[in-house]
Amino acid sequence: MNAGYHDGEPVVVTAALTGGVHGKEANPNLPETPAEIGEAAAACERAGASVVHLHARRENGERAFSTDRFQQVADAVREATDDVILQHSTGGTAAPEDRRIEPIRTDPPPEMASLDMGPLNRYDHLTSENTRAFVDRLHDEMRERGIKPELEVFNDGHLNETLAFLDRSDTTDPPYLNLVFGGGTTSPPSPRRLLTHLDDVPDGAEVNVLGFGPHQLPVTTTSMLVGGHARVGLEDNVYYRQGEPATSNAQLVERTATVAEQLGRPVATTTEARSILGL
């Protein structure tokens, strides 16, 4: 990754609109239907997001993995936005592997898709396994369909997994890592730990950072300060500040764009983002 804010490199802002864990019960402004997700994507694009990270839901808000439902979401986003980059999630704790591949089988395929680099605990009894065999299977199909993987690195161990994956795979350059900070299986959040993580990121990689809940603003700001990119949105954090629910995904993107500009890093256009990410 580049040296930092003084290089003035554009920041790629990703908006994680919906997620696959919580829903409107956590914040009624979280978009769930295709129409709502499309509308949110358009607002985020106007606010500075060049990438939208997408999940699909059933009408009652419950998780959906089918190609058909992702097609509806992708169509709604493309209809509502100008040029935003679509990044489909392939995450899905407890969902069968065959179901988790379905989101990347839309027509056209998304330009990007997430690729979880290892196991992740959920609640008291669930684990999203993400075995190496499944990571490779997902990546093989992404490569066949021309989809850029966003390598989701939930902790230090996943950094090891990522380095090994890059050694054995022929993924496109530059590698795009998403470092995750928060509770549970994710990396404990702190600027110092983020900087330590960056020491282990391979040369030439682009790095995005996300933080769950109250850690969203501090770790994404740190990332932008040291040359990385930022993901924000209601998937990761339903509050604007403590005790104040966010009014929209766009509100969180607007704040990130403001911070980036204040730090001397312009917000990437979609054209710049495609160049940075090697799309």
């Binding site: 696959g20 808000g61 419950e62 407890a94 609640y123 009894h125 669930l126």
Partner: peptide, 19 residues
């Protein structure tokens, strides 16, 4: 949460008594 609802409904082979 929607993720927990998959346990509640027994979807994907999940079972409330186990999961």
């Amino acid at each position: 949460q929607p993720m927990r609802a998959d346990i509640c409904t027994g979807r994907y082979g999940l079972a409330p008594s186990e999961d």
